[in-house]
């Protein structure tokens, strides 16, 4: 087997373990929510209460998740668990821009009510563009213009044309 083929096999195994963890988490959540649904009081006006449909759904999730766990345990070789952490770190390092983007989005969503839509959007667009773009003077100018249009411009468009007022901020 070539080195790339071996790496792919290791990555696939790590993926299977990550999926196994997701099945376990889903199973635990489904069982917990099933019991929460069982606690919803029923109405005397109907045969099925407000908790009946969720109970059916969460029982279904628990059943499928249990099958998925058994299937995944069958597929994963025992040695794969020891390599899981190293593989996950390598996967995350390769996709560091994803985490930067999601962190920027989280920061942006938190800042909107404080700074208002226009300023927060301008900072978010320009900041993320600076992280993602190839650094050239021309792209920097384009980035500034685009950030201004889709922050202050969009706010103006929604307020003046659609009479939808985006958050103004408290600061």
């Amino acid at each position: 087997m070539s080195a790339t083929g071996h790496d792919e096999k290791l990555a696939r195994e790590a993926g299977e373990i990550a999926r196994l963890l997701s099945y376990v988490l889903i199973l635990i959540a489904a069982v917990g929510l099933f019991f929460t649904a069982a606690g919803i009081p029923t109405s005397r006006f109907e045969r099925l209460g407000a908790g009946a449909f969720p109970k059916i759904v969460f029982a279904g999730i628990a059943l499928v998740a249990a099958i998925a766990i058994i299937d995944a345990l069958r597929k994963i070789p025992s040695g794969a668990y020891g390599r899981f952490t190293a593989q996950t770190v390598a996967w995350a390092k390769q996709r560091y821009l994803v985490f930067v983007t999601l962190a920027a989005l989280a920061g942006y969503l938190i800042l909107i009510p404080l700074l208002g839509f226009s300023i927060a959007s301008f900072m978010f667009i320009l900041g993320l563009e600076l992280v993602l773009m190839p650094r050239r003077p021309a792209t920097l100018v384009i980035a500034m213009i685009v950030a201004a249009i889709f922050s202050f411009g969009l706010n103006w468009l929604f307020a003046e044309v659609f009479t939808v007022f985006l958050p103004r901020g408290v600061l």
């Binding site: 983007t101 667009i125 993602l132 773009m133 685009v146 889709f150 985006l166 958050p167």
Partner: peptide, 30 residues
């Protein structure tokens, strides 16, 4: 991509907010 990703994300934020004019919908979106 470096231009379209942040811009469309802002459009998504506007679309989510304009639906009910609720800031909490934005946290949900994230």
């Amino acid at each position: 991509k470096w231009l379209i990703v942040p811009v469309v994300m802002v459009c998504c934020v506007v679309g989510s907010f304009a639906l009910n004019n609720r800031v909490t919908d934005l946290y949900l979106l994230g």
